[in-house]
Design a protein around this nucleic acid. Sequence first.
DNA 1: TACTAATAATACGCATACTACCTATTAATT
DNA 2: AATTAATAGGTAGTATGCGTATTATTAGTA
Lengths: 163, 163
Amino acid sequence: MTVIYDLPGHLIRRLHQISVSAFTAETAAAGFDLTPVQFAALSMLEENPGIDQATLAGLIAYDRVTIGGVISRLEARGLIERTVCESDRRARTLRLTERGASVLRTIWPAVRRTQEVIFADLSDDERATLLSLMRKIADANNDLSRAPLRAATGRPDQDTSGS
Amino acid sequence: MTVIYDLPGHLIRRLHQISVSAFTAETAAAGFDLTPVQFAALSMLEENPGIDQATLAGLIAYDRVTIGGVISRLEARGLIERTVCESDRRARTLRLTERGASVLRTIWPAVRRTQEVIFADLSDDERATLLSLMRKIADANNDLSRAPLRAATGRPDQDTSGS
DNA sequence: TACTAATAATACGCATACTACCTATTAATT
DNA sequence: AATTAATAGGTAGTATGCGTATTATTAGTA
């Protein structure tokens, strides 16, 4: 009958919609006000302090323009610190503030609950299968996206000591 | 290492990103200028002529406000006709124009190619498994979304003759 | 050294997505 | 009949997500 429902793209969109909704609900219930993108940015910055916006965009597979806006809002809220890179004055070096690190530490339980909510009706086997198949598609079509996943290139200002 | 990559939500977002990108690329290459949402709206209207915006939103699981904007743009481009419903003057009766129906007829091959591109690296079994698991999650968490899927209720002005 | 190409970030515009609020209209209730 | 509740659609505001163009800066080349 309705052909739309059989299209993978439609199902994927529904899943995304549900995933974002679950994230918002769980984190809001825990007292946080972060979007999935903002969380991803903070999380990636914690593990790669000192990277610039373009590198961050590549690491979480986002458009550079989009990340610029996300970073601006996180900076305005005092969760991220943005300074001009000394070795390349075109770039902006990004770092978590103390408050940003604190938020990230405390929000993780809610984020884990989000994933549990989404997968609630699947068995362990089904979860593993689904994750594996999704990863396969994401990896295979990485270049198809306008914001492909890219590894960090190791900028001059980036900390390599780890956290 | 990087925990983000293991989160289902992140993978789902990547899939969605890839799906939208593939849709845009394939349809644009075929000479069309439709977004996935616009296509879904047109497609659903073809099968349910005469429904109002709220019903349409429910059928394709979209937010009512979002659909309002989508409909406005489609109407401005002459693909959809929007008239005040006679039996309920709050509602707007939606119908495809001749041009809208024509676009829909000719764009389908490109849409099918989109799905083929996304699933290119999966076997038939894997495709079936993935679709089945995604459908399971979408169905189970329908109410979790702010725009749950809802069946048409059969408004007075809706055509029941079928296409 | 002057010119060119490449890159980081931004500005602008379009199109989702959703929350909160508002108006008009209809349905339900007293 | 009057009041209340519910519904359809809209506006305003925030936040993605991405295309295109522009600016500042760096790197490469003649």
